[in-house]
Design a protein around this nucleic acid. Sequence first.
DNA 1: CTTCTATCTTGACAATGTCAAAATGAAAAC
DNA 2: GTTTTCATTTTGACATTGTCAAGATAGAAG
Lengths: 200, 200
Amino acid sequence: MSTLKTQYHHGDLTKSLLDSAAIIIKEQGVESLSMRKLADTVGVSRTAPYHHFKDKNALLCALAEQGFHEQERILNSLKSEKQQATETFKKYVHAYLEYALQYSETYDLMYGRTLWKAGNPSDSLKTASKQTFKAWIDWVEELQEKNILPNNNTPLRIGQTTWASLHGLARLFIDGIYLDKEDLSDMVEQMIKNLCSTST
Amino acid sequence: MSTLKTQYHHGDLTKSLLDSAAIIIKEQGVESLSMRKLADTVGVSRTAPYHHFKDKNALLCALAEQGFHEQERILNSLKSEKQQATETFKKYVHAYLEYALQYSETYDLMYGRTLWKAGNPSDSLKTASKQTFKAWIDWVEELQEKNILPNNNTPLRIGQTTWASLHGLARLFIDGIYLDKEDLSDMVEQMIKNLCSTST
DNA sequence: CTTCTATCTTGACAATGTCAAAATGAAAAC
DNA sequence: GTTTTCATTTTGACATTGTCAAGATAGAAG
């Protein structure tokens, strides 16, 4: 009954695995996450994780999925603040980049080739990502109506290109191409100018 | 003397390795390039490649470096065409995306985490990338003078954000986030509108 | 022909992902 | 309370990979 470890049945191995994995990738990068070391960290034998996740890919999908939920939480939280929509958008852009850099490894799983190209995105991951994308496009439409984002194309297209721009900036930092994080907020500000209809 | 294979000394193993590796990554992705299979493909023992490249990282760096040279060639070729600078810029954007998609695996090595974050970019790779970046920034300056790109910031900043946008678009396709390549040219057109000062 | 040296090979090891079969223990059925 | 069942975990095993160390080979230089 005690919540102490070293018992045969672990309690909630699924959760433990996810939590430990999240920490490991945040601190040491996805490439140094091995199923075996993870099992060891959690205090369980090599193959125990395979009874909770089909394979490594499935574990990573679950991590990515958590990221999508977190990101949606961020957007909703910002939208609930009562303020000028322009202000909300600017804050969102900053928040997006901040999230991407702070949880860069999770971000990489969410939007990187590991799962989407080299790997095999799970159905529920696909669902989560589609949902997040849809929420974004809907918001873009609102922003277009308020003349904050350009009206020279459909919400889908504007949403795609706008997001692509943010994503590109995020990736350059995440992947180690841009290293000087001093420049980040400057670049974000410029990006906002590029994206908004009202060039200042 | 004959250029036929199956001789102890291979002839130009360095080049053969690079060529085969380029084909393999293009056809099957970087993650399915193994040193051993590569050696086998080229018809040489497992460890022979290690006398030509310090390790796998070094081989990949060499591939990425070729990519930078190729990309610079593309830019120079476009700039040498006598035409409106606006036209040249538009063509460049299209060409950039085309290159990124056609040689997506090389592109990933050039600008992805494999080498820059998880790996260890060689000095000559760093040099090549810096050179390419500098050529880009110089051109951005010209484009600003001609009022094609916005003048509300330095060439460096505008170059960074503009490139980030292109890169982001490229990555979303490359990494399998955007799948519908029908939409590509549409999105590129919209991206150009976002980036240029003269919104149409 | 001998020696040198660049090039290539064989042997070996550790790390990894993951399958199959056996062991364990808690809960359900009796 | 005993037995049965089933989810959970373990041990054993295997193939793939990157890479090191030591030896083999052959063409060039003397």
